[in-house]
């Protein structure tokens, strides 16, 4: 039991911090522009594919450094030439635009890299078990993922709270017109934040690609989960995104590890449930099987009960 709890917690932490890399950019972009960026997970996928190609030419470590800025530039271009254009049509139009970008990124990835999964591997330097506990080993690469995402978290926190640039970004979140009055180029701040957010998503793709797989559907797999995270955490709130990332990460890994169903629970209480019935699926389904729908259940619940999320200060 301890083994299960320990490793689920550890894996949940790794997955949660990865989610935070993605959701931090998304929540910053939302806080600033009021845009929920559907294409965010698309930039995550681009990061993985860029890194895969770059790794083939120059190796993993240079790719780790180069791919995120490339994704960031792509993101900034989308903001500059697309999002800014549809901004005057309102938030619904912006949402539809980013949805279109998400579709297009997926199609472009399939065009350039094909439909089959790419063999983007863990670098040889990190391809060993870090430690073994109760015959279960923990790969070194996962600890590397954890290190990177914690590092980014600390860096982001310091930049936002301790530097002048962070001050301007924070001010633009809440008072964009006032910041403009003070002589800052707010649209450019938006573009830079969009670019940085995309670059963070790209970085998440670079480090997650070898573990979660590099394939054209990878954006869809994580895209909706990241939405769940930012909505639960409270749109625009970095602290909320952090807490919600860990919550969802741990919830997902624990649920997957639990092979119990309602029927088992009833049996433990001495109640027998018929196996042959129209509703049999309802109680024979195990927690592990319903794991994929738990985040969405949580999302709907949160939106109904508390639309500003856990840490949000304003409504979506």
């Amino acid at each position: 039991m301890f083994e299960l709890v320990f490793f689920s917690l550890l894996n949940g932490l790794v997955f949660g911090m990865l989610l935070f890399l993605l959701s931090s950019g998304l929540t910053l972009i939302f806080g600033m522009m009021g845009v929920l960026n559907f294409a965010h997970a698309g930039f995550y996928m681009l990061g993985a594919y860029f890194a895969f190609t770059l790794t083939g030419h120059i190796g993993f470590w240079p790719a780790l450094v180069l791919a995120p800025p490339l994704v960031g530039v792509a993101g900034a271009l989308v903001e500059r030439h697309g999002l800014r254009r549809v901004h005057r049509f309102g938030h619904v139009a912006e949402l539809i635009f980013t949805f279109g970008v998400a579709v297009l990124i997926e199609e472009i990835v399939q065009l350039v890299w094909g439909r089959v999964a790419k063999s983007y591997e863990v670098p040889a330097l990190l391809d060993f078990p870090l430690f073994t506990l109760f015959e279960t080993s923990f790969p070194a690469y996962k600890s590397f993922m954890l290190l990177i995402s914690v590092g980014i978290f600390v860096f982001l926190f310091l930049v936002l709270t301790r530097t002048r640039a962070g001050l301007i970004i924070q001010a633009s979140l809440t008072h964009p017109s006032m910041v403009g009055m003070l002589g800052h180029n707010v649209p450019r701040v938006f573009m830079v934040v969009f670019g940085i957010g995309s670059a963070l998503a790209g970085l998440a793709g670079v480090i997650a690609g070898p573990v979660l797989g590099t394939f054209p559907g990878m954006a869809q797999v994580l895209g909706s989960i990241v939405f769940v995270v930012v909505v639960i955490g409270g749109l625009g709130s970095l602290a909320g995104a952090f807490v919600a990332s860990l919550l969802i990460g741990v919830l997902q890994t624990f649920a997957v590890a639990l092979n119990y169903s309602l029927k088992d629970a009833a049996a433990a209480l001495g109640i027998g449930l018929a196996a042959q019935s129209a509703f049999a699926d309802l109680w024979t389904v195990t927690i592990a099987q319903v794991a994929p729908i738990l985040p969405y259940l949580l999302l709907v619940l949160i939106l109904v009960v508390r639309p500003m999320g856990l840490f949000g200060t304003r409504e979506t």
């Binding site: 938030h91 949402l95 909706s224 729908i293 969405y296 709907v300 109904v304």
Partner: peptide, 19 residues
């Protein structure tokens, strides 16, 4: 609610049923 909240709930329900 309308706007983004509605869009998000609809996405959540869509994912819920699809999964």
């Amino acid at each position: 609610r309308a706007g983004t909240v509605f869009a998000m709930i609809s996405l959540g329900i869509g994912e819920l049923i699809a999964s």
